[in-house]
Amino acid sequence: MAAKVIAGTPVEVNEEGYLVDASQWNRDMATEIAREVDIQELTDDHWKVIDFLRRDAEEKGGSPTIRRLKKAGGIDTKLLYELFPGGPLKKATKIAGLPKPASCI
């Protein structure tokens, strides 16, 4: 664990850069974390994914899956991979200030 300043706010992150405490997250941080994972701009489609992940984590907890994003969140799998190239779930959860998913699916 390490202390880090994201978007002007001091937070705790783990060795992979994921926020330790999801409640420290805010929307300005998302934009900054996105740039760290090579996503220069967050579009409305990105936000749809991030908002679903935040809501789902709060209501349900546990690890999201790509299948759940499609079935419960209405997020098309093809689009998801386009939005977050090179690791959609890993990147999206990081940007959303959530833990790295522990699911294989």
């Binding site: 899956t65 790509i66 299948r67 759940r68 499609k70 098309d76 799998t77 093809k78 991979y81 699911s103 699916i105």
Partner: peptide, 18 residues
């Protein structure tokens, strides 16, 4: 229950994933 889909859905998912 673990979100592992049936084969047809899984094949579609992998294809959609590129």
């Amino acid at each position: 229950s673990l979100d592992i889909p049936p084969i047809p859905e899984f094949i579609e998912m992998i294809h959609d994933a590129g």
